[in-house]
Simulated assay, not measured.
Amino acid sequence: MSAKDIYHEHVKHALIKDGWTITHDPFKIEYGPKVLYADLGAEQVFAAEKHERKIVVEVKSFIGASVVTDLEQALGQYILYVDVLSDIEPERIVYLAIREEIFATLFTEPLGQILLRKHRVNLLVFDPEEKEIRQWIP
């Protein structure tokens, strides 16, 4: 199991503040003989509709020497979780949690825009100081 991202607790608190119940910390994914660990699993129950929404969140800080290398690593992990969960827990939606600052820079540039335009990644954009979710981008 890898170390928690430096913004792990920030995202956890932001989800709770947004009405989510943290069900897994970390979220263990067993597939064949391999075990993977996403950062968080959460659920939100809609009482009026009598159904629940389940998500898995992978938190990424993007503080490495290269934002492109960080993006490549984050996308690889994200795609792996999406593909495995589509087989074993298809009701769960996977989100990549990133800071507002990263969204405002990387995802407004052509490299990030193509990912959004082609719906390659679901983003949870958060404010680390306020510990709040700013955007959900499916």
Rank of each mutant, 00 (worst) to 15 (best):
I114D: 14
V67C: 14
H24A: 00
V35N: 13
A38R: 07
L106N: 05
H24I: 00
L116H: 00
E9W: 01
R99S: 08
F62T: 05
F103E: 07
W20S: 06
A65S: 13
K54N: 08
I133T: 07
L40Q: 07
D83Y: 01
I102C: 12
I16W: 11
V82T: 07
Y95Q: 00
G41Q: 01
K131L: 12
Q73H: 11
A14Q: 04
K50C: 01
G19Y: 07
V57P: 07
P138V: 04
G76V: 05
L40G: 04
L115T: 02
L124K: 04
I98C: 09
G112P: 05
E101H: 11
A47H: 12
T21W: 10
I55K: 06
R53S: 08
V45L: 14
K54R: 09
Y7N: 10
E132K: 13
E130F: 12
E43Q: 14
I137T: 05
R99D: 09
Q113N: 08
L80P: 07
Q113M: 08
A104K: 12
H10V: 09
D39K: 04
P138A: 05
D18S: 14
E100C: 00
P26Y: 03
D5H: 12
E101C: 10
I133S: 09
V59R: 12
L15W: 04
A14Y: 01
M1A: 06
L80W: 09
P128G: 09
I16H: 09
Q135P: 00
Y37G: 03
G76Q: 03
Y37L: 06
D18Y: 03
P33V: 06
Q77S: 08
Q135S: 00
L71W: 04
E43C: 12
I98M: 06
K131E: 13
L96C: 08
Q77P: 01
V94I: 10
P110H: 10
T23H: 06
D83S: 00
L40S: 08
L15Q: 06
D5F: 11
P33Q: 15
P90D: 05
R99G: 08
Y78D: 05
P26A: 01
Q113L: 09
E9S: 00
E72P: 03
E100W: 02
L116R: 07
E9A: 00
R92C: 02
H10Y: 09
K12G: 01
E100G: 00
P110C: 02
V56D: 02
H10L: 08
I102W: 07
S61F: 10
D70V: 01
E132V: 10
F107V: 05
F27K: 11
R117E: 12
R134F: 04
V125I: 00
V56S: 03
V56C: 01
I22P: 01
Y78G: 02
V84C: 08
A97Y: 05
A104E: 14
L15H: 12
